[in-house]
Design a binder for these strands. Structure first.
Lengths: 263, 263
DNA sequence: CACAAAGTTTCATATTGTGAACCGCGTGGT
DNA sequence: ACCACGCGGTTCACAATATGAAACTTTGTG
């Protein structure tokens, strides 16, 4: 593992739940030597990526990160573009919604709009979601770059609930079904109690880079609700895609036509 | 220079103005070999810190950065805490204001509230400000950890305008004066046309980690305005400090008493 | 006050990173 | 139509850089 990778892993160790960590905590969490961990932290601190908390010797993420986040959002204003659309979606459905973006190993939740009902699915910004068992991830795999799909299918799939699909062949079918439908569904495959519906957000080439989804408590889910939500989420995804200058995902149909002339 | 440092330097190369960069651009900007640059980018991309733009081969900052920014802001909600106070300050003074935070080599502007007048100083979020010639930086040097001050004083000081103080001895006096006054002023030392007034934002130990400042076009500056602004900015700084559980900076007075008993 | 845990430094070792040269591709100029 | 240039990316012998076990210091706790 490269040194840079180690440093990044260190950064990833921080989370909302454990936002302040000591040297030993960090070293243990990532399984690097204390000396190594310290050197990495010093390097990172030298660029403001982490900082040592005054008084305690613990570390937290540094201010330079905010700066970088601003630069990204200025260049690619996904959050800003998605916010009004997402709030609408949440109002329409009454459920918690979020926009996620594909990163190297996970989907990352970049914006959340909470549902209005007393019982609702709790989503948090910054959360990392696996590709293979969330609606967001499936929407991305179905409509995103095929390399991403193949990469996920190559690796072993983690089982998170009894319903999680962990066999590559099954997952492939699921992705195919998602493409045909135009939206993804994940019922109890990530969290037993939650059913999510997601649609892809695409770039100018019609390739997905993220998704929008609605998460509904299983108890409230039904065929009728699914219909409503999938339509709403698909429309929201199109809106966001358009706002960012993207074009909607190419549908299954065009695929078939392109692949073989017959049928 | 360590590998991690190089990778961070690479990240810092991105800015709002040049948010999408090709391999060669990047390599040239940071003066690393193309091969090295590519390897660093790959490492960073593997963690979503940068991503390659679909279609073009250029790179931009990645989604993982947003996630980290969220974690930091959740743990240490400077932006959220400062926003209402800063808006107030900007309304009171009519001028552009911002909150900055000390990073390793610069102050980083983390929140901006634009002034209401037609002619106003333009501040941008994510901007990096040198310590020695900005009001924000001086406020930090005067009330922040003394190591930070000494570190800055040790290095050569860049001249940005004819008025910039570049001699360490003079800067030391300026910092001392800032501490006595309780607020910092920088008149034309960073940008000839701008006069800024800043006050420190402090942690629980009364040590500054950032500052709030008001930037006024030189033409509008006067003794009376200075009085109003310095009072307003000091009050805003106290508010933000309090909101974050900090305690106001220790004043010059207590310093004197602590140092020598006489006087 | 003493003990344990956390943080920090050191230095011989070997893993890791380096960069000059090279490849293939696409673009623009003639 | 062709060439030349610049760009993204790759290779591999070489060298710098990172590693980690141990020793040491500081901090915090009962």
């Amino acid at each position: 593992m490269g040194t840079v990778s180690k440093a990044m892993t260190l950064l990833e160790t921080f989370s909302v739940a454990s936002a302040e960590l000591g040297l030993t905590d960090l070293a243990r969490a990532v399984a690097f030597d204390k000396a190594t961990t310290l050197r990495l932290l010093r390097s990172l601190a030298g660029h403001g990526m982490v900082e040592q908390i005054a008084g305690s010797k613990r570390y937290r993420l540094g201010p330079a990160i905010l700066r970088l986040a601003r630069i990204r959002e200025a260049n690619f204003p996904l959050v800003e573009a998605a916010r009004p659309v997402l709030e609408d979606l949440s109002r329409q459905t009454g459920e918690s919604c979020h926009v996620t973006e594909a990163s190297a190993e996970f989907m990352i939740s970049v914006l959340v709009a909470d549902g209005s009902k007393a019982i609702r699915v709790i989503l948090t910004e910054g959360q990392r979601l696996p590709f293979h068992c969330t609606a967001s991830g499936l929407a991305y795999l179905a409509f995103g770059p095929s390399e991403a799909k193949e990469r996920v299918l190559r690796k072993p799939l983690k089982r998170l609930t009894p319903k999680t699909v962990v066999r590559a062949i099954e997952l492939r079918k699921l992705i195919e079904a998602t493409r045909v439908q135009g939206y993804a569904m994940a019922a109890g495959t990530y969290d037993v109690e939650a059913v999510s519906v997601a649609a892809p957000v695409c770039d100018a080439n019609g390739v997905a880079f993220g998704s929008v989804s609605v998460a509904t408590p299983a108890a409230r889910m039904s065929e009728a609700v699914l219909l409503r939500h999938s339509a709403a989420v698909a429309s929201a995804a199109r809106d966001i895609t358009r706002k960012l200058g993207g074009s909607p995902a190419k549908e299954k149909i065009s695929y078939k036509l392109a692949a073989g002339r017959n049928t």
